[in-house]
Design a protein around this nucleic acid. Sequence first.
DNA 1: ATAATCACG
DNA 2: ACGTACGTGATTATG
Length: 879
Amino acid sequence: MEKIVLIDGHSILNRAYYGVPDLTNSDGLHTNAVYGFLNIMFKILDEEKPDYFAVAFDLKAPTFRHKMYEQYKGTRKPMQEELRQQVPVIKEMLEAMQVPLMMLEGYEADDLLGTVAKKAEADGLEAVVVSGDRDLLQLATDHIMIRIPKTKKGGTEIEDYHTADVIEKYQVTPIQIIELKALMGDSSDNIPGIPGVGEKTATKLVAEYGCIENAYAHVDEIKPNKARESLRDHYDMAQMSKELATINIHSPFELDMEKARMTDLYTKEAFELCKKLEFKNMLSRFEVSQEEHNHTAESFHMTSDLTQAQEWLEKLKKEQQIGFYLLSDEKQEFCGLAVSGKEETFFFCNQGFLTEQYLTSALEELIETAEQAVTLQLKRQLRFLQLSESAKKKILDGAISAYLLNPLKGEYPYEDLAKDYMKELIPGAAELLGKIKISDLNAEDERLSLLACYQSHTALHSMSVMLERLQGEEMERLFEEMEMPLVYTLAGMEKEGIRADAGILKEYAQKLGEKMQELEQEIYAEAGDTFNINSPKQLGNILFEKLQLPGSKKTKSGYSTAADILENLAPDYPIVQKVLDYRQVAKLKSTYADGLAAFIGEDGRIHGTFHQTVTATGRISSTDPNLQNIPIRTEMGRLFRKVFLPKEGCIFVDADYSQIELRVLAALSGDEALIHAFQNNIDIHTLTASQVFHTPLDQVTPLQRRNAKAVNFGIVYGISAFGLSQDLKISRKEASEYINNYFASYPKIKEFLDQAVVTAKEQGYIATYYHRRRPVPELTSSNFMQRSFGERIAMNSPIQGTAADIIKLAMIRVDQRLHSENLKARLVLQVHDELLVEAPVEEEARVREILHEEMMGVTDFPVEMDIDIQSGSDWYEAH
DNA sequence: ATAATCACG
DNA sequence: ACGTACGTGATTATG
């Protein structure tokens, strides 16, 4: 049997608009709705494989049905501008794909869909109607299926309805959907309905009386008094609603079935439009045009031959600026080298005479010869290279420059750089490789070449644009003098790693395991049931339902069992304390005891990864494992620091900035009181306590100091009375009193924080002392919560970011000193305000001096940076 | 894949 | 009235 698919254009476009996060192409054109529409359309067509296909749209002029409603209600909601501008785009796309658009003056899309679907059914076809609008359910029969897509996170789910499905879900026949809608109304479809009649009552009425007219015939019998009276009072409304809800299946519209016959959607015009809209993962659907899609690849060449390679390398030596990319596989094994000149890119396979040794040396030479060399993700490649200091200075990393230009993206794959800075659409790694692993490919596989060449090509050709932008935004020095040198420091730290004792870890794991079992049994005994304590859902049910504990709070999926809630209950309920203990022990065992052990390499050291392009503020992050969140706040956790040891003959020297963020705040704001306090070594939390609580300095109680410390934290986080009240478990009123007192004592800080918000609103971004930018799009949100979030970001980012800049500069300087003074001591960890150095015992004194000089010497603020230095034979002792 | 929780600064 | 403190990453459970 032949089949026709009909799409409700506006309805699906609307669904897509709200279901797909905002997308724009380089021209600033919003494309999310079009993108979502096409995804839904392709999915449906792939599933249905119809013989005919058309899309219905309303015409702009108000239709009869809407006019009627507008008289009643006065206005209609205007369509959002971002959505409105996408309507002509999707129409253009469909026309390019030769899909007929069904439109008729005076009729809604619903009417055309109904008319065509019924006609198709009568002609012996299967019809599939796709809409987000449940009104359409009235069309369902055994041969007309209504499909309602729901854009969920992670994909599109579609609800399908034939007659039986409608009855099952709504307890009424499809045609009675009209009655149902007329009674209960539908705000999204502008049907008023009967006041006071909701889904329940409407369903009951329809089930009982079949239709509205019959319900009115028996209106005296209707049970709920309210509904009966409302029905009586609103007879005219019921009639109008029914008319509004009824789809006209006899509209004078005829679909030209020949034009609707499915042909190839993937026309040249559609391809061009997709390209313009930058729907690059849709381009793969256009098989015919794939070659054109890859036109840049025409300038790529590969070889495994030594003579050929030598010839190409000679050619490359004449280039002033080169791009390069050392390709490695998942196991970090060398796979080949790509080098780009102005016109062409060459790939050298890891094959025959072209060994890793040969190729890396060749690249080192090329970098020496060139004036500038550009790559992406340099740090990964440094394991293969030995560069002179002069060579290091010539290299730029495009992923890092892209991060500086927009630190909110999180990832900077080459295809994004090509799109954003070169207006080139090229296939990404996922598209090139699919699920294939690089290590499974032959050394001469063309896909390896393409991958490396695209990286190299993009690095080279995007950099000029990015440099210009960086210049314009005054971040050139940040890039070249801070971020690029830091790459080498971080690479050194990763290569060095940090020694960790597997034996001690195993011992802790054992002990923690025993403790866990103990607690587990005790918890089960007190709960009178066994359950999975690690499951917040099960735990919440046990605590707040079975045991009826008070103070439950909501989350999206049940009760909150977060620590701050449980801590309130712990003093009164032993089981809660045990759950908290269990959680702590379980965390320590899984993340640290077992977790860290898995990362100890054959050399007895952990080689984690530091990320330079991840955080929004400019901080470094750490993974595999995260070495920046090793426990310290509880003694049981702190013991893990005894696992981290210096190698034979070495000692740890640990230096951390004291109060770096508050010192930065003092410097940036110029607040005299705060500057004076730091200059005179006054305990900052005690001072704040004395100001906030109007108490003489020498009479501040420990509790007051603790609370003042929370206020200081709050200031750095972008203060809010609510946040502070929550943290200190005090009323919002008290919290805002604290804050007011604080600002009265430090007026320039208030000025500074207010100015940060104003500046961020004006410019769209906020910057650190060293010009690092963070965009704050949240500030334009119409949502109060979002906007407040943006304000806190604007207050916090320059502080956190400037502190991050300072320690980055310190790292570079310390690292350079260690090298230039030919010391064996090496930087091994950075934890945001702390540097850990592994030093031969005889170098300890020198290293302490260097740390002191370089960490303090970064800034010349009116407030000096201060550091604490300690040494020890493990990290526990040294910090 | 996402949410909840918790480790750090 | 709204409903959160800023920045991260790993683990576990669960859809």
